[in-house]
Design a protein around this nucleic acid. Structure first.
Lengths: 343, 343
DNA sequence: CTGAAAGCGCTTACAG
DNA sequence: CTGAAAGCGCTTACAG
């Protein structure tokens, strides 16, 4: 593997001059530049990143930390961010962390090793941010978690208003005449009335408050089932829910993956959607546009989420403008899975 | 940020001894180890990865290169690999490359920077391997691409036999009495009769050969539509296919994502699956277990694919055993989307 | 078991 | 515009 030393020797220039050419600095003669670039090309020379990083105090990259690798929503967001960054002539480095990994701890490590000029977090746990983000001093943005209450002055957030969106979804059901509405939410314990703010809790809170506005008291023991965010879990939860509350006329699932399982369970039970029972999901991406029936759901504006995040981060890197906390509009999508209840 | 020098000063030992403790070497007195570990803990010291890599000739990690970040199949494989590696006490480093990126070029870079002891590739383009893999000298495994014909002695492959599996899927349709079977495959030009070996081509080849075995001549102009691997593309392709060949009694799509779009298009067209027309997909993961109707498809054994890959790689790293090229069994899953044609 | 020292491949003042 | 040299934070023979 050729090193900078080899290139220097072969070109007849010093290591310093070669380094200047590599880093596209202007204080080099055209003659030297051309000669050195030629040698670099001929030898397929690649600078050693580790040596580079060891010396550099800050790189020119933005580091994007993706939490979990199963979410098609985050995958789509990532693609949008990549495109938008490229438009700005910026390069990014993407790091994936596992569902259970601590993404802020990973970022602290990365800050030291990769020395990025900023971070964009796609998803994550709000507790990780609350507990550890103070150790990060770089301009950062988190998408899908609201950082307003954390008040770190270097952490902006762009989110969908989970509570309002769930409220909206349920209001559609209520408007159509539904009174017996079941909810399928996050893991057991996720909803306990205390002041949590994960997606599941916020969506449940929005749904329940809309019901109460309409004079419907929600009975968690009877009309709620907890499960994780997969289709299989949604299937099982729907089964438990329908067994204890067969008179429900509608089900609201806090994620589309769960809703897919719910649709299937109802079918297996011999019920027609939406004739016998309505189903509404949340976070419409991909597949549910093609499900049979097409799912009624809340669609988040991923493209806007990506665009605003990139623009805000670059602005703050360049001008040190203050962090912002913004909610992005959502949209209720009709689909085919919701209709007025049977008389 | 504390460095090894700080730890040395604070502990009263030399840099060399601190380095030995960090790297868990045994030639250190218990007394020195305890003292140094205490100082490390107190100061929350993290060795600088770049400096480490600059010196090390080889790290203890295996690097896993994932091609594309949208495939739930690869995401599942990755999880299985992580678990299996952990069982072996091995740690891995995961790198995601974009759908259009050259994963072998990325690996060449990584080989230089991260200095892993081996590679596992999840997916990729066979052309990239053919053209560039010779530059990689580390023991490697590629999953889902057959490397037998490439004959690099450091590249094993574990694959599903696409051709045989597609053959099997179509044979089920034929056995049920179908004679008018349409195929939805990869991008235009993917199938051209020449000697290609991407997944789409292999699956189409298997399907067509099974038809011919049964005396059915496949007419590409009439009964084939090309599109990429998304549900939306499958939807559009099914529409074009049904418009030119309304008498088809079955459709074979080379991926499940396409098949999902096909199911939806047929529904919109007013056809019932499987009463009016049958649909078979390929590569059953996730969602199609819950689709309405459940999709008949080919299921690959991802867990076995992951297990064999990990075991083979570690064996070859340790003992230098030769590369192997193995096909993993697949399974035809009945589902609800295939049935005998109407009389 | 421990320390002093060389060196990994770069970048960056500094001097000319 | 260019070169010589210091130094980034580690690891690893080598000597004791």
């Amino acid at each position: 593997m050729a090193t900078i030393k080899d290139i220097a020797r072969m070109s007849g220039y010093s290591i310093g001059t070669v380094s200047r050419v590599i880093n596209k600095r202007t204080d080099v003669s055209d003659q030297a530049r051309e000669k050195i670039e030629e040698i670099i090309r001929e030898n397929d020379y690649q600078p050693n990143t580790n040596a580079k990083r060891l010396k550099q105090t800050v790189s020119s990259e933005v580091s994007v930390i993706v939490h979990g690798n199963r979410s098609t929503f985050l995958a789509f967001l990532l693609e949008e961010i990549q495109i938008r960054m490229r438009e700005h002539g910026e390069s990014i480095n993407v790091q994936f962390t596992g569902e259970k990994e601590d993404e802020v701890a990973a970022a602290i490590q990365i800050a030291q090793n990769l020395k990025p000029k900023g971070f964009i977090f796609l998803g994550g746990n709000s507790r990780d941010f609350r507990d550890e983000f103070s150790q990060i001093t770089l301009p950062s943005v988190v998408i899908t978690i609201d950082a307003e209450n954390m008040a770190f002055d270097n952490l902006s957030s762009f989110t969908t208003d989970d509570e309002a969106a769930a409220d909206c979804a349920v209001s559609k059901l209520v408007a159509e005449g539904h009174r017996r509405i079941g909810i399928i939410g996050g893991l057991p314990g996720d909803y306990s009335g205390e002041r949590r703010n994960d997606h599941s809790t916020l969506r449940i809170r929005g749904a329940v408050s809309e019901l109460e506005k309409n004079g419907i008291t929600f009975d968690f023991d009877r009309d709620y089932e907890a499960c994780d965010f997969s289709a299989e879990s949604g299937y099982q939860a729907a089964k438990r829910l329908m067994e204890k509350s067969p008179d429900l006329t509608a089900i609201f699932a806090v994620t589309d993956a769960q809703a897919v399982g719910v649709l299937r369970e109802l079918k297996d039970r011999g019920l027609s959607v939406p004739e016998d029972i309505s189903v509404v999901g949340f976070n419409g991406v991909d597949y549910v546009r093609y499900s049979i029936p097409r799912l009624a759901t809340i669609r988040q504006d991923a493209a806007m989420l990506a665009r605003k995040s990139v623009d805000d981060l670059l602005l703050r890197i360049s001008f040190g403008s203050p962090a912002v906390y913004e909610k992005i509009p959502y949209e209720y999508v009709d689909g085919e899975s919701a209709a007025p209840p049977r008389k």
